[in-house]
Design a protein around this nucleic acid. Sequence first.
DNA 1: AAGCTTAGATTATGGAGATAATCTTAAATT
DNA 2: AATTTAAGATTATCTCCATAATCTAAGCTT
Lengths: 180, 180
Amino acid sequence: MRVSREVAEKNRQKVVASSSRLFREQGYDGIGVAALMKAAGLTHGGFYKQFEDKSALVAEATEAALAENRKKWQDVIAASDDKAGEAIASWYLSPLHIDNRSDGCCFAALAAEAPRQGVKVQETFAEALEASVDLLAGPDGNRNEAMRQLSTMVGALVLARAVGSEALAQELLEAAKQKP
Amino acid sequence: MRVSREVAEKNRQKVVASSSRLFREQGYDGIGVAALMKAAGLTHGGFYKQFEDKSALVAEATEAALAENRKKWQDVIAASDDKAGEAIASWYLSPLHIDNRSDGCCFAALAAEAPRQGVKVQETFAEALEASVDLLAGPDGNRNEAMRQLSTMVGALVLARAVGSEALAQELLEAAKQKP
DNA sequence: AAGCTTAGATTATGGAGATAATCTTAAATT
DNA sequence: AATTTAAGATTATCTCCATAATCTAAGCTT
C-alpha cells in the first residue's frame, strides 16, 4: 500500500543504510535484493520503485558507507589530542574492528570487490580515499606518508580478518601501529 | 566417457589451476561450478566425481594460488641482488600487478572474502602469511617490520585496484614503496 | 577376453536470484 | 469529494546455481 512521501523517503534511506551494513558484512555478491529489502522491513517487489537495479543500490550503499566512515574519522580526530595519524591508527587498528565488519571500514570490507562494480563505485572509492588521506595527513601533513599509512591499516585489517587465528591477527594490527 | 587415471588426475589439476585464477579474477561468489568446469574444458556434471562440493574446490584453489604466489616470491628474491624486502616491493608494487588479478597476489584478490569461506581457507591464508613474512624478513630480519611491509603492499594494491583512476593508483603504489 | 569400475557427459531437481507486470490502497492534487 | 498518482505487496518469469541420479564408454582387473 501507499505511504506518505516522507515515509517513503525514510524507507528508501533505511534500505540504503541497512544495505551499506549488509554489503560490508557479506560482500556485494553475498546478498540479494530480496534479503536486503527484508532486512529493511520491506518486501522484495517494492525495490524497483525506488532503485533502477541492484547495481544502483550498490553505488548508493557504498557512498553511504564511505560517508559514514568519514564522519567517524572526523569524530575520532576531533576527540583526540594526538596528531590525526596517531589518533586514527590506534582506533582503527583495535581488535574490535576485526569483528565489526558491518559498521567498520568500507575500504577493508569492500575495496577488493570494487573493480567488478562499475565506474560509479570506483569513483566513490577514489573520492573517499582522497578525503581519508587528507584527514590522515592533517593541515601540514605529508600526502605520501598518509597514503602509505592508509594502505598499511587497510592491508593489516584485511589480513587480520582473513587468518582466523586471533593471535596472528593481533600481531598484524600491532605491527601496523608501529612507526618503523 | 572414462579416461585414464593420469588424465583424470591431470583434469582435476586443470580444474584447480584454472579455478585459482578465476576466483582471483571474479571472487569466490562471482563464478559458479558450471563456469569453472567449462573453463577447464569439462562439463558441469563431472565436478562432483572429483570434489565434495564447491567449498572443497575453493579450499584447494586457494591453496594452489597461495603456493604459486610463494614460488613466485622465492624466484623474485633469488633473482635479485637487493634485500628480500626491497626486491619483493619493487616487483609487487608495479602497475602491471594492478591489472593482473588472475595470476597476481591471492591476498590482495581474495583475503577480504576469506572470513566467509570457512576455517580451512583461513588456515591456508594464515600459513601463507607466515611464509610470506618469513620470506620478506629474510634470515636475520624483523618480523614486525615484515608484517607491516606485507600489510602496506596488500593494502596499496587493493586500494589501487579499487579507485579506477590510473594516476591515483600509481600514486598509491609509489607511496607504498617508500620507506618512511 | 569378460566383467568390473569409474571419469565424465547428460539430464533432472530444487532453490535463489534479478527483474518485471499487476494489484491495492492510501496519499496528493484538483 | 473526486480524481489522479505512486509506494509497496503479490505474483510471475526467466536465468543461474548447486547438487544429484543416471548413463555410457573406455580403462582396469583377473
